[in-house]
Design a protein around this nucleic acid. Structure first.
Lengths: 135, 135
DNA sequence: CTAGATCCTCACGTCAACGTGAGGATCAAG
DNA sequence: CTTGATCCTCACGTTGACGTGAGGATCTAG
């Protein structure tokens, strides 16, 4: 399969695929004329790479994890990278959840104001975060 | 309070605070000599800004949300930004959760291999994502 | 009064994952 | 055989949230 088709089926740009190759994440054969030739499996591989990118992993981190998919042999370095990244993602999910809850709180406040602009000035400090009660 | 103390208490760099001011996120008074003077409330404000940055919001987005904390008056633009970002964060949490589950799966596989290298070659395709069963 | 800590304003550097032409070769269909 | 789509390799541009000096003023403790 050529690069355009892989890009389309994996939902990434052609440029991205060339970049992945540059980073050593996807290896492609070459036709006699120099065009890249991908196996079917490349599509799933690229989707997996995208999944990890979306989770905030760097090319370097992905590069340390990917060989496991091919060989299913985990070096200690790979295992550590796997657990490290899992932990990083957990932390990130927590942070995002806090931000989400916080925005929800503000949205509620905004809706309240919408309904009765005059009567909710008393709850003004609700917006001022999780600090302990003043006085 | 001067910039160094705010930075320390909010857990950010001095440079970051200057950058926030440049972006209009935090306004600081100036002493006669030109040094920035922050009110106590600046610490919480900066922490809130950090929360939103950590959730992937840009300065521009934060700038559209922040006035709400001061005035508690929500323009339609602010309400929309709030709900938009909440949605964005939800999507991101979902993506992170998928990546997390996927890594967990791989970690399990690696642990299995650790325990019995010879007997788990049959489950090799478990690592190959959610594609339908082959054959 | 002096020295070390802290502050100021430029202003260029960084890093990652691509985007975006430039200039040219190759492929597939009619 | 030609033409439009697709591919190739450089190689510079982009974006955001700061980092990092340079060069100099100000503050504060002894």
């Amino acid at each position: 399969m050529r690069i355009g088709k892989v890009a389309e089926r994996a939902g990434v740009s052609v440029r991205a695929l060339r970049y992945y190759e540059e980073q050593g994440l996807v290896i492609a054969d070459r036709s006699p004329s120099g065009h890249r030739q991908y196996p079917e499996s490349a599509v799933e591989r690229v989707k997996f790479i995208q999944l990890l990118y979306a989770a905030g992993l760097t090319s370097k981190a992905i590069l340390q994890i990917l060989p496991f998919l091919d060989t299913l042999v985990a070096t200690s370095q790979m295992t550590r990278r796997l657990t490290d990244e899992r932990a990083r993602i957990r932390v990130k999910i927590d942070a995002l959840t806090r931000a989400h809850d916080r925005l929800e709180e503000l949205i509620r406040l905004a809706a309240e104001y919408e309904n009765s602009p005059a009567t909710c000035s008393a709850s003004a400090d609700v917006a001022a975060s999780h600090s302990p009660p003043r006085h």
